[in-house]
Each structure stands twice: as structure tokens, then as C-alpha cells.
Design a protein around this nucleic acid. Structure first.
Lengths: 112, 112
DNA sequence: TTCTTATGCATAAGATTTTTAGGTATGATT
DNA sequence: AATCATACCTAAAAATCTTATGCATAAGAA
């Protein structure tokens, strides 16, 4: 099955939610986790991910902590307090979007 | 409740599906229908809608038929054969996206 | 031992899709 | 007479992504 497209705007929500669950993650880890959780359906490209992380950090939603593992640099990101609150809002918006789309495209949709 | 944001890429799917259901619709009608179906949650801006309709038409997915009602012009759009096939694909992609997002952001999500 | 793959970061150019902000015009309501 | 609803449209800017590229280390295969 070809990988389905990532609707623009959903990447930030994905990042925030994963960090909310995991506590802290580094960029490469996020790309792998998304691939794993979606069985390869969604692939986060690095060209999208890193700028997104930098922006979320600049907006004060994420904090960074640099670590060195096996002589390689890792940048661990975690939610700030504002980031946690924002995550709640983004998830609510995503849920609302999904409900709206279901009403629009298929009122009888049974997504388990 | 504030209107939730439209994830970029979903507009085309919305247009195609509405036309699939209704047979034919004109632009303004689409904006009103979306507002109605989502109880004001999603608002299709004309600046996005009209270029999108023109592009779908240019791609051969829509046909246009101009009508005059009450001395006002209406442009009715309907799916071409290719448009119908494409609609099936887009809906499958949307469903896949939704499933992926559910796995990512909330494995226990009970939508509907 | 050299080549490839995996890990890990990053940026820049271009494409796509949207918002924002206008514009034109008719008919109905205040 | 002014405003709102209907109905079309475009252009500039913003937002977000893909594609392409770059650097570097470690591990495994040839």
C-alpha cells in the first residue's frame, strides 16, 4: 500500500502528541516512531520535521536538551507548560476536524 | 465554539465528495453546505474554493455548466468519469489518514 | 577495507494550498 | 439609501510541505 499523504497542518499535532506521551524524544526518533505506529503509511520527512521542531521551540511550546550518545548528537525535545496546554487544544481541534470530515464525506462512517 | 482549522489538502476531498453525493453544485452552494453540515465548524473561504474548482476542472475531474438564475450567474460543477474514480481514491486516502492519526494521537479514540 | 546502510543533525529552493484582502454585480430587506 | 445575501473572481502573502542536498559517526556487508 502506498503511503498516504500527510494533510498539511497535522505534523505539529503529531509532534506535540508524541512528546506528550513519551515525555521526551529526538527528531530521528520521531520519524521512526511515526513510521512504526502507522505501519509505514505516514512518513515524516526531515525537511519538514526539523523546521517544525525549531518553530515549536521558538514559539515556546518545546524545550531542547542536547545529549551525546555513541559520539552522535541527539536533541531531545519535551513540552513546556504552554506546550502541554497547546497540545490539548490541538488535539481537540483535530478531533473536531475528523468529526467534521466524517459528517461531510460519510455520515455513516464507522471508524472503530 | 471557534471554527476549527481546515487541514490543508482536505478541501479538494470535500469538494469531490459533495459533488459525488449531490450530482452537481455551484460554488456558493458548496460554502453554505459545508457550513451547514459542520454546524459552522468549517468555513470554506471563497479565495480557496474558486481556485480549487478551477484547478480540478483543469485537471479534468470536473465539468462546468453555466446557468442564469434570477439574473445571477451560477456555475454548476459535476464530476467527470475520471473525477468519480479520483473521488474514490481521495476518500480512501482520507480514511487512511484518519486511521493513522487515530493510531498516533489516541489509540483508544472512540469516534462515533 | 571499502562501500553501503543506519543514525542524527541541518538548510534551501520550490511546490502546494490556504488566508487575507480586495473587486464586481444583482436582488431583497431595512 | 444602506445593508445584507447571493454569486462570481483574483492577487499578494503566509503557512506548510517535498525534494534535494550537505555534514558527520557507527555498524555491517562485500
Amino acid at each position: 500500500m502506498a503511503n498516504s499523504k500527510l494533510y498539511k497542518g497535522s505534523l505539529n499535532t503529531i509532534i506535540l502528541k508524541l512528546l506528550d506521551e513519551k515525555g521526551k524524544m529526538y527528531g530521528y526518533e520521531i520519524t521512526q516512531k511515526v513510521k512504526e505506529l502507522t505501519k509505514g503509511e505516514l512518513k515524516i520527512t526531515e525537511g519538514a520535521l526539523y523546521p517544525a521542531l525549531h518553530k515549536l521551540e521558538a514559539e515556546g511550546l518545546l524545550d531542547v536538551e542536547v545529549a551525546k550518545v555513541d559520539n552522535r548528537i541527539r536533541k531531545y525535545y519535551k513540552l513546556t507548560d504552554r506546550g502541554e496546554k497547546e497540545t490539548v487544544n490541538r488535539l481537540a481541534e483535530l478531533e473536531e476536524f475528523i468529526r467534521s470530515m466524517q459528517n461531510l464525506v460519510n455520515p455513516n462512517w464507522s471508524i472503530q
